[in-house]
Design a protein around this nucleic acid. Structure first.
Lengths: 210, 210
DNA sequence: CACCGATTTGAACGGCGAGTCAACTTCGCT
DNA sequence: AGCGAAGTTGACTCGCCGTTCAAATCGGTG
């Protein structure tokens, strides 16, 4: 068989997942057809079903696949920042839909909405979603822990609790921004998040107003 | 023609909207068929399209119709409470999926998720969603204003800002609870919301621990 | 080159569900 | 009672799309 053959096959697999995620972002999960995904790959519809046993499985896999991709990118970026304060600020920036580059974050949040809706009726996706979400909250609580170790943040509430609170705030605001709420601009969302986070964690915003 | 005839027609209209909302909650927007809605009404599928020009229009109307219903019920209930503190606590209780009666709030939040997803690609629903959301945030900021008038709450941040922050927090947490997050129970969500709200608004929780 | 399995194609199948329609019923009015 | 309009039915049409499949192609191996 040879390794190149396996490699190719794996590439195709990911290529399809990637295309699927993009189609879902563009057309919405409900309106995504196999034909669309095939076209994105420049491939025939039959091939999609050669690599995935059904459309449903493919779509679910694509949702979590894309989420993984974004999570890893975020992790990598945060690891390069030393101060907890800087990490928190960057995490928030990365979470605001449309603040940095146009497409990536918009895609991520749009996919979250689709995950939520489908998880309501798909128990296996529901379990997966919870794991993804715990990971996301954990990246917040880890920043809090880090900040306490370095002395940037004071001791106080349970870091996990803070991760949940701040995470929920970001989720809620991100939905508004994603849906183009006219009142809540991306910049304003960033400010609100930082402001509330600083009050909840208990540090002062003054020293470094970005 | 006579008014009774018009009245009947209006009832049918609402009956269908109601049935549609329930079906959407049960099966999800994407899986909702005209047949299902007809069955809920004990009526033939043809009749549904006699009252609504298309399935799409019916579904969108059903989403906002149900939201209205819940909003009015909430308003009525809050108006009966004198203290701002009591109003805030009740608003939070009413917002936690599955804390009080099983079905109603679960339905409401499930429908919100569907609204969000569809609003991503339906500009007219997007506009409608924003209005609904402003109304919801406003019911929070009004409580803050009321509390400042009565002296229960101290002066501080802009009430609209607080409405946005607390509203977003509730949204984010409600999604977790709705999706049966194993860590975040309904009771815990209520506690977290009250706790964060009291810190943001600046009043003490001690005097009345429910 | 000839073979073989893996990959890829595109045509065809089949079911499903939105929307149409012509016939039938119901109800208010005179 | 009987007319006309509104309400209701259920069978039918039609297009769409997931899935299947037989044939074609490709690429590595001996």
């Amino acid at each position: 068989m040879g390794r190149t053959r396996q490699k190719q096959s794996k590439d195709r697999h990911q290529e399809i997942l990637d295309a699927a995620a993009r189609v879902i972002t563009d057309r919405g999960l409900a309106e995504t057809r196999i034909q669309d995904i095939a076209e994105r790959c420049g491939v025939s519809p039959g091939l999609i079903l050669y690599y995935f046993e059904s459309k449903d499985r493919l779509l679910v896999e694509a949702l979590t696949f894309a989420n993984d991709k974004y999570y890893l990118a975020q992790s990598r970026e945060l690891r390069r920042i030393a101060s907890a304060r800087g990490q928190l600020e960057r995490l928030i920036e990365l979470s605001v839909p449309g603040l940095l580059d146009e497409y990536e974050r918009l895609e991520e949040w749009a996919l979250w909405l689709e995950i939520w809706v489908r998880a309501l009726r798909d128990p296996s996706l529901a379990r997966e979603r919870e794991a993804l979400d715990r990971r996301w909250r954990r990246s917040i609580s880890d920043i809090v822990r880090h900040g306490r170790e370095t002395g940037e943040f004071p001791n106080g509430s349970d870091p996990d609790e803070l991760g949940m609170e701040i995470g929920a705030l970001i989720d809620g605001l991100a939905v508004q921004v994603l849906l183009n709420d006219t009142v809540l601009t991306p910049q304003r969302m960033k400010d609100v998040c930082l402001d509330v986070a600083s009050r909840l964690i208990g540090f002062s915003l003054e020293p470094a107003p970005a």
